[in-house]
Amino acid sequence: MLENQPVVLETRDLSKSFKGFTAVHNVNLQVRRNTIHALIGPNGAGKTTLFNLLTKFLIPSSGSTFFKGENITSSKPPDIARKGLVRSFQISAVFSGLTVLENVRIALQRKHKMDYQFWHSETILHTLNNEAYELLEHVDLARYAENKAAELPYGRKRALEIATTLALDPEVLLLDEPMAGMAQSDISRTAELIQKAAKNRTVLMVEHNLSVVAKISDVITVLRAGQVLDEGSYEHVSSNPLVLEAYMGKKHA
């Protein structure tokens, strides 16, 4: 059934080298609509680099990327987001000095064309509050709305990031290790949240927590040394000895 879904995000022979070191090498990835697609691999495999290439925070050395059939290889990062492909960062990226409510409103402002208005008082932004509170309810943060984002515990910051990302209502979400550094209780809540967010959406997610990956993802791509090692269901990739070796290290060496 999933195989019938159209490809929404695709890379063709995508490569990136840093001064001779190839971090991503000829990657051909196809992400299908309405799936949760996990990207796993050992540290330094090139997962974050691949995200940076997809969102143009890095320029590919060669190869191309397609979003909904459109070649986006030479688009600019903000334009990628405007097309509906929105990323999060491996290190929590909230606007620390702003309140939780303001964080979400920033994402809403652009959509509502309230980004260049310098002549209005910011109270005009209160018209966005209902929508913002709804998003905060969704991630169970409404009661922190007036707190500075910096004051939130780590797990809550990541939840705020997801709410901010969802405020743009993106078609495709790229999440870079959304659960890294989280307590167990936060992990299960975040996993549920991602599943909720993935209704009518596509999620491409880098994650080291394999039990979560096993539980929520439809497809898993394993990356090692910048190359795709294997792809398929959790049952499939977890039975591949090469994957185990890449992930666990060379046990028998």
Binding site: F57, A93, I106, Q109, Y116, Q117, F118, H120, E122
Partner: peptide
Amino acid sequence: SPFGQVLKSIRENEDR
């Protein structure tokens, strides 16, 4: 102003 909010977000985290 709304514009000022955007400026502050750039100050806080430009990549975001």
